[in-house]
């Protein structure tokens, strides 16, 4: 019991330390590092979204890139074409993303396993094709440029948070949304709803038999996941100020799957660990020039061979044993 208590408090202390580190980070980091870490936060949100439907609910959704793109493009278009401010644009974009998710989820979630994966993949290809071809609206392959910044937020004692000048302001904006997302996901997966998602993943027929409305559980997971992906997309659009059709493609989903599996599927921390680690490694490897994506690919294959449950999964599985062993060692030494 005492050990458990110790583990529990260590975990919370670690979490608090991480938040403090994240908050003071812009004070010590260079512009370059801050840019990368801000992108890591956005990819983390996308990976968390994917983890909910793929990791926890066991549905191989290969169409998440379209929802990321839906959030990014709707936010961007509303700001550029209609001149709406970011917050209003984001709210409308998220509402539309949710509507799209329900419309796509209703027919595709009737299918299972590989069929669902391919159905959602097809939806994603359709979405990207429309974004590329609907030139008049989306500027096609050229991409949508000059998306304005988040409007400045005035502070109560004079001054304002200016998103145009300050990279740190953008970082904090993304960070706040990431922390909110983590809290929401943590609450969901530890709730009865979250348990019903897990039940669907384990055995859908059995879950149905014990009274879970599996279709509703899947649709809920699918929609919440799309909502978070759309949010990440909206932040991406306003942070970079430029979006191209490539960010709506299934390649984005594949990247997110990579982050989730390397970090650890069906764990809260996994997608975040995976996103940060792989983005930073990818950035470091650019020193190798043209070879860097080959090395990255090799690392990906090696990680799935030697760490199939992901870093966080392996930690959760092996750490308690190692910890016990270490303690016993100490007792013997004394």
């Amino acid at each position: 019991m005492e050990n458990l208590l110790k583990l529990y408090t260590t975990k919370h202390l670690l979490f608090a330390l991480l938040i403090v580190a994240a908050l003071v980070f812009p004070l010590v980091a260079s512009t370059y590092t801050l840019r990368i870490i801000t992108m890591c936060c956005i990819w983390s949100m996308l990976a968390i979204a994917l983890n909910l439907i793929v990791g926890y609910t066991g549905q191989g959704n290969l169409g998440l890139g379209a929802f990321f793109g839906m959030g990014a493009y709707t936010t961007g278009l509303l700001m550029v074409k209609l001149g709406l401010n970011f917050w209003l644009a984001l709210i409308i974009a998220l509402a539309l993303t949710v509507i799209l998710a329900v419309l796509i989820g209703l027919p595709t979630l009737r299918t299972k396993g590989a069929y669902f994966a391919i159905a959602t993949l097809c939806f994603n290809i359709i979405f990207t094709t429309v974004v590329i071809q609907w030139d008049a609206l989306t500027k096609g392959q050229t991409g949508l440029m000059n998306i304005p910044n988040v409007p400045a937020i005035p502070l109560p004692f004079g001054g304002q948070i200016d998103f145009h000048e300050s990279l740190a302001a953008n970082y904090y904006l993304v960070l706040i949304f990431l922390i909110l997302t983590i809290v929401v996901i943590y609450r969901i997966v530890n709730s009865l709803t979250g348990k019903s998602f897990l039940a669907v993943r384990q055995d859908e027929d059995l879950a149905e038999a014990i009274g879970i409305n599996t279709f509703r559980a899947k649709l809920l997971s699918f929609t919440v996941s799309a909502f978070i992906a759309g949010l990440a997309g909206g932040l991406y659009a306003v942070y970079l100020g430029f979006i191209a059709p490539a960010i709506t493609s299934y390649g984005i989903t594949f990247t997110a799957i990579l982050y989730v599996v390397v970090g650890g599927a069906a764990t809260v921390a996994g997608p975040i660990v995976g996103s940060f680690l792989l983005t930073v490694i990818g950035e470091q490897l650019t020193a190798f020039g043209t070879l860097h994506l080959i090395i990255y690919g090799v690392l990906v294959v090696l990680s799935i061979i030697y760490l199939p449950m992901g870093l966080v999964g392996a930690y959760q599985m092996f750490w308690p044993q190692i910890w016990q062993k270490m303690k016993r060692g100490k007792v013997h030494a004394a």
């Binding site: 799957i257 690392l299 799935i304 449950m309």
Partner: peptide, 20 residues
């Protein structure tokens, strides 16, 4: 510990290796 996603991840890695 492998899941249906494992072969997808291997494929993603291979695509990166092959194409580049």
């Amino acid at each position: 510990f492998s899941t249906p996603l494992s072969s997808l991840i291997v494929s993603i890695g291979l695509i990166m290796i092959f194409n580049n």
